[in-house]
Amino acid sequence: MAGDQIVEGSEEQAETPARTLPDQAILRSIAEQFTDIEWAPSTGQDVFMVPKDLVRDVVQAASEAGFEMLVDLTVTDYFRRRSSRFELVINLLSIQHELRLRLRAPVPVDDVRVPSVVPIYSGANFYEREAFDLFGLIFDGHPDLTRILMPDEWDGHPLRKDYGMSSVPVQFKGSHQVK
């Protein structure tokens, strides 16, 4: 899968030379494998904007380039601020190169399926479950996508911006029995 991308990417690379690439050799080598990813540094940190279907391939490429650890995976909700509402954020860390890399992938609200990266980094497991639980993103290929922080029977995904801010009544059945 990743191999296909590499061939495809480097062919198209020649047609669009205007793209800015990072100076860092390792990051540059990842960026050169894909045409569709964009280097968008933010407050001095290295960030790639990645289309959501490419997430797994880019993560695979990064892991091959020496990013050993997935430190963080989270979601931001740009409710009514952007056309594609969610944004998947993956933080990678390379211990050997002392380097961090952040991938940001916009996810529209009507298609919340993203490829899971658990096959590449086992450590993404809890993080993806958390993102599913609190934001409702669906990770294709996750071995056990269940709620992790909220009770199983909970309605809704509480960290979405359109979920109410303040408290909700106690939800379990015995609560009225206070004597």
Binding site: P158, M165, S167, V170, G174
Partner: peptide, 19 residues
Amino acid sequence: TGGMFNNYALVQGVDQIVP
């Protein structure tokens, strides 16, 4: 009382479930 966390996750005061 739920303290500073007036949100979805917390029971706002344990007196709602035990005396």
